[in-house]
Amino acid sequence: MTPTPIPAAAVATRPSVGDRGRPGRLRASIRRRWQLYLLVIPPLLYFALFKYLPMGNAVIAFKDYNIIAGIWASDWVGLEHFVRFFGNPMFQTVVSNTFLLSLYALIASFPIPIILALALNEVRGRFFKRTVQMVTYAPYFISTVIVVSMAILILSPRIGLASDLLGFFGVPQTDWLAKPDFFRHVYVWTEVWQTAGYSAVIYLAALASVDPGLYEAAKVDGANRLQKIWHVDLPSIMPTIVVVLILSVGSIMAVGFEKAFLLQNPLNLSQSEIIATYTYKLGILNADFSLATAVGLFNSVINLALLLGVNTISKRVTGNGLW
């Protein structure tokens, strides 16, 4: 951390914009700002090693990966692993499970934060508003392991909270988590429970920046609260809603591994096996690296295509996009 005086020559020869080509500018910048370039090397090395190298390693999806020979010496097999995956009966199961789970989660968890934000925005009492916000925000910070454990405990037959409440209404005792049909409900509603408060924050911020003049105008026109929400609040936060929707639709096939894996048990696999958990089992547990990589790559490509596609459509239709 010893200060290095800037050489006078470097200051004098500081390139003015536009008088040199790109390589010249880069060289001059490195000479002048070498400490910045030094600083950025370790994090760039990190991205090269742990993000870009894996992208290169993904070629084993097109090879017959042999641990001893290594990635580059293994034999090319073309699309064999993809063909194997598409021909496997599990293909349909995991793809449709992933899609349906995600679609359900999207439909359930998209509108609720908007409703929560609009309702909070109507509240005048600061204390009440803050309390609701802090409490609904809290579950976002609880770990997946804990949320799943809580769901299992609460839904467990005989001792859980749910069986008490449902028993009160005369619903018979059931082991919910052993029912394949129930997996998606547990997954989606714990998701809503965990993220609604967090997702509402971004809408609340958008609502806070609505032009007060619009409310004045609405008042002059004699609008009631509901009309005001419909004609002022909702249109004002529409760009935010669109961006959030693009992101959610774009990531519809990118269901995370963590929660589905924890909620899985041998009885509900017919609905709980998704692409991510299937990849884990093929790759880490069965050590079929090439096939697992092919499945993962298939999923990554679909995700990228979806995100780009949805973004393009949105830009064309609404004028709002991610970039």
Binding site: L49, F50, K51, Y52, L53, P54, M55, G56, N57, A58, I60, I71, F257, A276, T279, Y280, G283, I284, F289, A292, T293, G296, L297, N299, S300
Partner: peptide, 9 residues
């Protein structure tokens, strides 16, 4: 790259 290629690194 995915789970397995990262695992290999």
């Amino acid at each position: 790259g995915g789970m397995i290629p990262t695992y290999l690194v």
